[in-house]
Design a protein around this nucleic acid. Sequence first.
RNA 1: CGGCGUGUGGCUCAGUUUGGCAGAGCGCUGCGUUCGGGACGCAGAAGCCGCAGGUUCAAAUCCUGUCACGCCGACCA
Length: 579
Amino acid sequence: MKVANLVGQRFKERPADCVIDSHALMVRGGFMKYVGNGIYSEFPALRRVTAKIENIIRKEMDAIDGQEVLFPVVLPASLWEESGRYESVGNELVRFKDRSGSNHVLGMTHEEAAVHLVREYAQSYTKYPFMIYQIQRKFRDEARPRAGMIRVREFTMKDAYSFHTSQEDLDKYYEVCFQAYNRIFQKAGVPEVITVQSDSGMMGGSVSHEYMLLTPVGEDSIVICDECGYRSNMEAAENQVINNAGTAEELECIETPDCKTIEDVCAFLESDVETSCKAVVYQKNSDDKFVVAFVRGDYEVNETKLRNIVGEEIHTAVITDEDCLTAGYIGPYNFPEEAEFYLDVSLKGIASLVAGANKEGYHYKGLNLERDLESASYVDIAKVKEGGICPCCQKPSLAIKRGIEVGNIFQLGTKYTKSMDMQYTDENGKNNYPVMGCYGIGVGRLAASICEAHHDEYGPVWPISIAPWEVQLCCLRADDEETKKTADSLYNSLQNDGIEVIYDDRSVRPGEMFSDADLIGAPIRVIASPRNLKESAVEITTRDKSVKELVPVEKAAEFIKDLRLKLFAEIDSHVENYK
RNA sequence: CGGCGUGUGGCUCAGUUUGGCAGAGCGCUGCGUUCGGGACGCAGAAGCCGCAGGUUCAAAUCCUGUCACGCCGACCA
């Protein structure tokens, strides 16, 4: 391939709407083009990257006995009605009518299609276990696409579904899949991907893991223990708090004019924020009934945790003067009967608290929840803090990091086989529901994440296993006959050896040629120029600048081949070293 | 869905306050000089100023409406 013919323009200026580097570089490098909100086309350079990622995935899926299939993008609503998700899933699911007026959906995930495909085939226990997977486009009408290809509405995903005749068999295969996923991310050149335990969300099921690529621009917060290796997402991380009891005091109602925030109250009463009780107010979506979460003043509420405990959807409350609650002065003592409240574990064991009095302009001092409330029970509804206590090893060593979710694996159980009535006959002639697992990887998101994790200010630094081309050959001064001849012949010889080369023989200035090469991001760069040729050599470098050598022209091809193998070997060593 | 912001050549943006010929740099086309980190000269092409209505002799600029997009939050297998 010649740069001169490569479809997709590279340019100098950072597009205004790009917030993260990978987005800006992939647009500037001619990898992708914006089409609409959360919708992008891939230029040839990116398509080559995603195709390589797909092939890495395909190989690993095949190696664990996966069989590739292809489900439709458009599915009849009836299939989603069977599982109940036609009703239960929100607006992310695009619903539409065809010309005859019957309801359809755009596939945003394919559990229904998977069950539909195999429920006649797999009626006998002898067919189990098996796994099917596809690599295909999905559409999810996300509320807020962002960060380029990291969070889009239409995207390519590898989704896999396994079917088993017992939980034990699923457990076994889940572990196999867990390892296959680790190999995929190692081979894609991102050893920084880690696994965390997670909450399974709308997919249902119990055990699940997310594969997170750690980066400060990630959308998800991850809790990591540096001491024992505990890893979890924020919702699944138990918050443990050990309070110094302090000395109990008498309960006192004090006038606190214009003290509506915890900071105001603590400053006014000269008390510590760690002995204050903060109220965060929500309302139930169903009937607008108030739900108040009380946490220690220095903690934040985790809404997902609270939602799970309340057991229904909630939203941030709007409090007006007519309501039973007095904004700014809400406390658990003398709490109005019309609302309900939850006490967070961070309040447990404090002998003397400052809290609102449920009366305009007043707070309580010396509140002791165990003593003053009829029954005080505590729940875990606060976000874990940096330096918090690890629920696993009990050391105060929790760190909070950001990450991008590039894959996930779930144990689905019988949620879909039951709702869609997929059964098999076991060796005793008895009918049973198969147990399912499902396994996803976002291909485009992984490509963008790799760019985010591996780039410098000039462009992506692609790992060789997924780079659009392995070698970029730059011919400075293509008008110089000798130089052009040398570069041409090297290009031909490398291509004959099966090496992927992108060849730049345009008559542009060196600066532009180097900038373009940086933006394309091929791991090996070869520079032919009159200057190098004076020493009968070409310059060979790596994109990450770890290698930079003048190599005699006649030895260049051999050197490049060796370097290429060395770079691949480095990736393989990640796979082997991974435990 | 809430808050904030932005729509002017392919890209980055000025011009809007105070209404008066549609602008710059990059990119693109041609010619020439250059050539190891986005050079320079000359000559060009390219815009219904998001859309619709209104005010005005005159609207990119003022008014009303609307659409789109972005950021923060909510939400999210």
